[in-house]
Design a protein around this nucleic acid. Structure first.
Lengths: 205, 205
DNA sequence: GGGCTTTTGTGAAATTATAAACATACTATA
DNA sequence: TATAGTATGTTTATAATTTCACAAAAGCCC
């Protein structure tokens, strides 16, 4: 394997591999194979081997992959060995669900601050967090060096929030608002919109 | 254009086009171009034209696309002109957020029944819905002919819920549980897992 | 230890997807 | 009515991705 630019589509599959490995580990399994992983994920075994080969040699011929070892390697590659602090903007129903979501634990992320622009909500608690004024996004996020944020605000507020996050130095944004936002070079955005997924499936109904 | 099997990746972009068109329409715009749409979505104009060409000719040379007309056509293609009834399984925080989410309106989907397996919750209300026993998924969904469902239950319950949905005749499942589930041929599953998106972005931090 | 089985890592081949290029058609304007 | 300017739909070219195929390495069993 030679170090080259890794295709983004490959990077996008690594978290799926890691997730599948976590489940196998939880079942007490020690070793797996590209074939088994592929079966579980609906991906060809060859593709999994090829994807991993971009980063090194993690398996043993005739045996497969040590689950614990490969998980560690993937976590290292994805830079999720330590937990990233995440800023959440939007303390509505979705923000509430995200704050209480236990799926972030051990996966490399931890919500550590919550913002909202509603004066009714500012100063109140959401879970263990005090809801902070969105006006303070820039200073607080910059001060704390947070570089990951989740946007869970209505669509008409999303671009404005994203702009503030970018100014604060955030480099990765997970946007639940159903609009495509503009960000400068060097800032990543990923989108979660249930309607997009549902409409895509509706085509095949 | 000749009718052939449409690449899934093309189908996956249609909802994005439709979403962008909705925004333009909301701004009072009448006409747009592949170039403008591409700019807004971060997709090349050629790709948009090519994607649309799989389904017909919707534009006018020298002018572009009539926003209302193209939206109608995309809705027809995606089969979201009428609203699909959606069954929601899981009345936790996420289910709560989904029931109150106003982003489904006018997009082709409407949550119309809610299930949970927690005896504490069954019979109570979630928004305007009475929470029904998950045990009744099969009969109720089959009776009402629902073919779209959203799974918002903990990972350890997800496969079981999916199995029940499949038996009930559901053909499209949006799964918020962070596990890859097994479904028979002919049943679609799409996944929403914030951790996957965050980990993918973390690679580039 | 030798033969058999398994499974990796990886080039080469096949497939699929994206981008570029362009002929054609339409609008607007003078 | 002629001309210039746009923007489509489609063809062609380029690039990216996936699959295939196989040598090599490791384990297992007698």
């Amino acid at each position: 394997m030679v170090s080259k630019a890794i295709p983004d589509i490959v990077v996008g599959r690594l978290p799926l591999y890691l997730r599948a490995l976590s489940f196998l580990a939880a079942e007490g399994r020690q070793v797996t194979s590209s074939q088994e992983l592929g079966q579980k994920l609906g991906i060809s075994a060859a593709q999994i081997r090829k994807d991993l080969s971009h980063f090194g040699e993690f398996g043993k011929q005739g045996t497969g992959y040590d689950i614990k070892y490969l998980s560690e390697q993937l976590r290292r590659i994805l830079k999720v060995t330590e937990e990233h602090e995440v800023a959440l903007v939007g303390a509505g129903d979705l923000g509430h669900a995200l704050v209480h979501y236990d799926g972030f634990a051990g996966k490399g992320f931890r919500i550590s601050v919550v913002f909202d622009n509603n004066p009714q909500k500012i100063g109140r608690r959401l879970g263990t967090f005090e809801i902070l004024d969105s006006e303070s996004i820039e200073t607080i996020i910059a001060d704390r060096g947070i570089e990951v944020a989740i946007v869970a605000v209505p669509p008409n507020a999303a671009q404005e929030v994203v702009d503030a996050l970018v100014r604060a130095g955030v480099k990765a944004i997970l946007n639940y608002a159903p609009i495509t936002v503009k960000v400068p070079e060097g800032v990543q955005v990923q989108y979660i919109d249930p309607v997009i997924h549902l409409q895509r499936m509706a085509y095949y109904l």
